[in-house]
Simulated assay, not measured.
Amino acid sequence: MYKGSTDCYTESKTDQLCERDLRRSAVLRFLLSTKASQKLLSSCQLETHAVDLEVSFPKPCSSQGGGKPRSSKQMKEQLSSQMTYQGLMLSVVFIMLCRTEADTVTQKNVVKVGGNGTLSCFLKESHDVLQVTWQKKNTGVNENLATYSVSKGVNIVEKYRGRLNFTRLSLNDTTITLWRVRIQDDGCYACIFNTFPTGAIVQDSCLTVYEQLRGSLHYVVSEGNLTATCSANAWPRPVISWIVPKAESEKTEEVVTHPNGTVSVISKLYVNSSTSLAGQLLICRVRHMEEDRDYSVKVKEGRWFSVPWLLTSVTLLIVFVGLVLTVVCCRRRRKKQSALIGTPEN
């Protein structure tokens, strides 16, 4: 609630102040009374009330120089409302902030590599739009893609011709479509409505491009040590984690970016005491696009032979077989010799 001054003014000073305050109050009343302002305030989910201005009037007094006392009617006409400059500016800023909040919308779209991506922008409030401009938001300077206006029509940047076009031609409701999207198209785009007299109103529309996840898991055992390898290829970059029974292990990871933009992550798990994993389940968990996929393999039993132990076993087996054959051969010779000695001559 704003009150007029109750001080006693001279006529000249009062006239100057009243003229200034009446102008400010008239602007404020106009801002708060227009339908556009009421809609903006409503869109901000705020309750509006009529502005209650209470004015107190000074008692009639004489101006310097013997002027006639001023009547309350004259004072009421000139001091009908008083609003400070700061209050007026806060009111204007408040309404502009509400307008910005009401018009700013961020959309998100998800599309697979090779598919078609659609980006849309829409103004909730009515504006006098002169031109719509689409830009790809990059670090530093944004990249221009396309513009549309009634006077100049559609203009597509050479780089995107044949792969991008407007699929909805409206200055307040615009849509563009990217065909055969690539990983490089991933990111956010700025939709700029150039309006009069408000100026530029910017909205964001984000496109998430993904490549389907491909993964694999296998293991090998060497000299009693187990090495498991989990590979995942996709976009955005997949994240690999391991779920293994309690065992002493180490992990390494390698990341490879391919020319088409996809990323391969290769994670290796090294287990020293491999016998502790016999019959257990190894799980490689890959997180991609906020979803988890498990790749698992069961470690087989009875295959835990180190190379030296295996060579020793084979050597002992060969020696044993050789000894057996030697014994058998010796017995056969003795039998033959005994048979020849015991045969009578004619």
Rank of each mutant, 00 (worst) to 15 (best):
1 M>H: 01
12 S>H: 12
16 Q>D: 10
16 Q>H: 06
18 C>P: 03
20 R>I: 03
20 R>G: 01
21 D>I: 00
24 R>N: 00
25 S>H: 03
25 S>L: 03
30 F>E: 06
47 E>W: 02
49 H>Q: 03
59 K>H: 01
61 C>R: 00
64 Q>E: 04
64 Q>N: 14
72 S>A: 06
73 K>G: 13
90 L>T: 09
91 S>Q: 08
91 S>E: 07
97 L>F: 09
99 R>M: 15
122 F>I: 06
145 L>I: 09
159 K>M: 08
174 T>K: 01
182 R>Q: 06
183 I>P: 06
184 Q>C: 05
184 Q>T: 13
190 A>W: 05
193 F>P: 00
206 C>Y: 06
211 E>H: 15
211 E>R: 05
214 R>W: 12
223 E>H: 14
224 G>Q: 08
227 T>Y: 06
229 T>N: 10
229 T>M: 13
253 E>S: 05
255 V>D: 00
257 T>E: 00
262 T>L: 06
268 K>N: 10
271 V>G: 10
277 L>S: 07
278 A>R: 08
279 G>S: 14
295 Y>E: 07
303 R>H: 14
303 R>I: 14
305 F>Y: 11
307 V>N: 09
310 L>F: 05
321 V>C: 15
331 R>I: 10
337 Q>R: 10
338 S>T: 13
344 P>G: 14
345 E>F: 12
